[in-house]
Design a protein around this nucleic acid. Sequence first.
DNA 1: GACCAGGCACATC
DNA 2: GATGTGCATGGT
Length: 222
Amino acid sequence: MDESAVGQVLREMYDRLASAYGPQHWWPAQTATEVVVGAILTQNTAWTNVERAIAVLEDSACLTWEALREVSEQSLARMIRSSGTYRIKAARLKAFVGVLWSAHDGLLESLLGGELEAARARLLAISGVGPETADSVLLYAGGRRTFVVDAYTRRVLRRHGLIEAKTGYEDIRKMFHAALGADVQVFNEYHALMVEVGKRHCRPQARCTGCPLASLPHQEQA
DNA sequence: GACCAGGCACATC
DNA sequence: GATGTGCATGGT
């Protein structure tokens, strides 16, 4: 399938999902700080487990960059225990906060600003920030035009024959960037819609019955 | 009790 | 550069 054909399918998918599910109001967070913290805590973890950890941080007045800079890594780890792999995630949060304060005076707008790919490279250089976390932060905390490719997106595209199992993150991201226009809000909604349709219909045991994308060419799960 | 969840870094081949 | 493994909780 050539690029223009793929683009057409991706736009069709968006229209169908948006019509079926409506606005998703993502990211589920009050502040940009909370988006970043949530993005790191949700790595390989269900969101419900992250919500508890965020609540503890909130109750402990630790959801500001100043507080996250001051708190010890050990205390931080205890507070985020419910999100799983908590020692690793505490170190990752500290790494992020360290870069934020050492190179950007604690200003997230500075870290996430400027030329997009340069900002993205700055994030990827932080230990614990991979492509998905970087794009989540750029899009949902920075309002930048970048697509978040997650496990659900892969499954949906794979099932519809738009990618192969081996297709890499960057290639998938480029497919969306080429297919979609300049409107950041579309990037914001599209990823959230992918998660929604993925949860409902592209989990390992889920069925295509009732899926808004079921009338597009696809394969039922084996 | 097994499997999964909105990944990533690191070791090894 | 592809593949395997540790991290670790809570829900189903």
